[in-house]
Design a binder for these strands. Structure first.
Lengths: 99, 99
DNA sequence: AAAGACCGGTCTGTATTGCAGACTACGCTC
DNA sequence: GAGCGTAGTCTGCAATACAGACCGGTCTTT
């Protein structure tokens, strides 16, 4: 019992934040995803989305790929192996702690 | 896909906070629980625990029962039906959104 | 009786952070 | 040149998690 509770209190907060959990979830299932797409799917504001993406990048959970489509900048994100593990571990802990 | 993501972004933040999720989880499985016990299990500081408990009470997710053991005050918590539903719904959404 | 340890609780201060929106920079289109 | 679409930075606001100090009260120990 106590263990389950401690597990809950020990969740990775980088993943736990809904906005970032959403981002990671999309990335985990979609491979590579463009900024614009993510913005539409999550309905986060640009500033906010950028902020969360930067945090995830800093944490090493995703990579940012900058490219051009013609001359238009296109930013894509891809989940890293570390990120995939973090996400998997998050779910694992959560499941283990569930009543 | 989009639906799953929206579900994540729509999680009940009152439940989502790990400390409160822990409290609710204990209460859901233990019925009635004393302050002291909860303090030990969660390792939250008194102030912090009280703060979270008050929020949960305000949200209608738990009841506070004040009593005396002899002349010593004993505070107990019990999850309400609303709280039980909120917790169940939280897990339901989370499961539905999981990859 | 005085000191110190519990009980639960309030209050304050701090540090973090989620979020929106304004502003920038760049190129394209009309 | 005006306006739009890319992405990104920066600022400011509001919320909040958390620790720790303090308090009223009781109980135990000296």
């Amino acid at each position: 019992m106590t263990d389950r509770i401690r597990t809950l209190l020990d969740l990775d907060r980088m993943v736990h934040e809904p906005a970032r959990l959403a981002i990671l979830t999309v990335l985990a299932s979609a491979g590579s995803v463009e900024f614009k797409f993510l913005e539409q799917v999550t309905r986060l504001s640009k500033g906010n989305l950028n902020s969360h993406a930067t945090k995830l990048e800093t944490a090493g959970y995703l990579e940012v790929l900058k490219a051009f489509r013609g001359k238009v900048p296109v930013t894509s994100f891809r989940i890293t192996e570390t990120g995939r593990e973090a996400l998997a571990n998050y779910w694992k802990k959560l499941m283990a702690a569930q009543s």
